[in-house]
Simulated assay, not measured.
Amino acid sequence: MFDTMTFTKTLGAFCGALLLFLFAKWGADSLYAVGGGHGAHGEEHVAGYVIEVEDSGEAEVEEEGPDFATLMASADVASGAKVFKKCAACHKVEEGANATGPYLYGVVGRPIDAVEGFGYSEALLQVGDTWTPEALFTFLESPRKAAPGTSMSFAGLKKETDRVDLIAYLDSLDD
């Protein structure tokens, strides 16, 4: 009862419907997101006029947290080991054991592109010459911001305490 011709017609109808749906989606995207320009996602809306305001002369001062040395003095190695679990998907701590990323044994204080056999992206050379604790602190906050163009897809660690704990943990691995 279900012969080749019926199967071919059914498959053709399904493919035609899918193609029609894709063309409709493409047309709607180009019409509403790009062409109109009103309310497109990611578009910044600008006011039609600017209201001038007098400057009161008082500049707002951002409250700065503790300095880097104070943060490092209070770093917790055990907490850093827990934070490292986020890194363990791509990095290993055994010397010479590269994964998606280079091994991190002895990373604190070593040159940035020192692991032999690992292809570093050129963007990492913007960070500096050596993985100092300060360079790691900045890099770990947002790798893509610290080294634009890096192939590292990690979003970063926003909390300062997580970053210093991780640096203390990595530094403790090789004594």
Rank of each mutant, 00 (worst) to 15 (best):
Glu116Cys: 04
Val108Gly: 08
Gly42Asp: 14
Asp129Glu: 15
Ala13Val: 06
Tyr105Cys: 11
Val46Pro: 00
Ala168Ser: 13
Pro111Trp: 03
Glu94Val: 11
Glu141Thr: 10
Leu18Ser: 12
Ala123Asn: 00
Gly101Val: 04
Val107Gly: 00
Leu140Cys: 02
Gly42Lys: 09
Gly39Cys: 05
Gly42Ile: 08
Glu160Val: 11
Thr4Gly: 01
Glu134Lys: 10
Glu54Ile: 13
Tyr103Gln: 02
Ala17Thr: 11
Lys159Gln: 13
Leu20Glu: 00
Gly39Ala: 09
Ala114Asn: 06
Ala24Cys: 10
Val108Tyr: 01
Phe84Asp: 01
Ser151Leu: 08
Ser30Gly: 02
Phe23Ser: 12
Gly149Pro: 14
Ala168Met: 13
Leu104Asn: 03
Gly12Pro: 03
Leu173Pro: 01
Gly80Arg: 10
Ser30Lys: 08
Ile167Glu: 00
Gly39Tyr: 03
Asp76Tyr: 10
Gly80Phe: 06
His91Lys: 07
Ala73Arg: 15
Tyr49Asn: 02
Phe139Cys: 04
Thr4Val: 04
Ala17His: 04
Ala73Tyr: 03
Ala13Pro: 01
Val61Cys: 01
Ala13Trp: 12
Trp131Arg: 13
Gly12Glu: 06
Lys159Leu: 07
Thr150Gly: 06
Asp174Lys: 15
Asp162Gly: 08
Ala33Val: 13
Asp129Ile: 08
Val77Leu: 11
Val50Gln: 02
Val77Trp: 15
Ala24Val: 11
Phe21Ser: 07
Thr100Met: 07
Gly106Asn: 02
Asp76Thr: 11
Gly57Phe: 00
Gly117Trp: 12
Gly119Tyr: 02
Leu136Met: 14
Thr10Met: 03
Gly80Asp: 10
Ala81Ile: 03
Tyr103Glu: 08
Lys82Phe: 08
Cys15Asn: 03
Trp131Gln: 03
Glu60Trp: 12
Asp171Phe: 12
Ser142Ile: 02
Ala73Gly: 15
Val164Arg: 10
Thr6Pro: 00
Ala147Phe: 04
Lys159Phe: 02
Pro133Ser: 07
Phe154Gln: 11
Ala123Pro: 05
Thr130Arg: 05
Leu31Cys: 06
Tyr103Met: 10
Ser172Asp: 02
Ala97Asp: 14
Pro133Cys: 08
Val50Ala: 07
Thr130Leu: 09
Pro111Phe: 03
Ser79Arg: 15
Ala88Arg: 09
Val164Leu: 10
Met152Asp: 03
Glu141Gly: 05
Ala59Cys: 00
Ala97Arg: 05
Gly80Trp: 02
Ala123Val: 06
Thr70Gln: 13
Tyr120Phe: 15
Lys159Gly: 01
Asp76Lys: 12
Tyr169Cys: 05
Gly149Ile: 15
Gly149Leu: 08
Ala81Lys: 15
Glu160Thr: 11
Arg144Asn: 11
Pro111Arg: 13
Val50Ile: 05
Ser56Glu: 05
Leu166Gly: 07
Ala75Leu: 13
Ala69Asn: 09
Leu104Met: 14
Gly106Tyr: 03
Val93Gln: 15
Pro133Tyr: 09
Lys9Met: 06
Ala114Pro: 04
Leu170Ile: 12
Cys87His: 08
Thr4Lys: 02
Val34Leu: 10
Gly12Cys: 07
Ala155Pro: 00
Gly57Thr: 01
Ala135Arg: 07
Val115Asn: 14
Val107Ala: 15
Leu157Met: 03
Thr130Trp: 04
Thr8Val: 07
Lys158Trp: 01
Gly16Arg: 09
Pro66Leu: 12
Tyr120Ile: 04
Asp29Leu: 13
Lys82Ser: 09
Arg163Tyr: 07
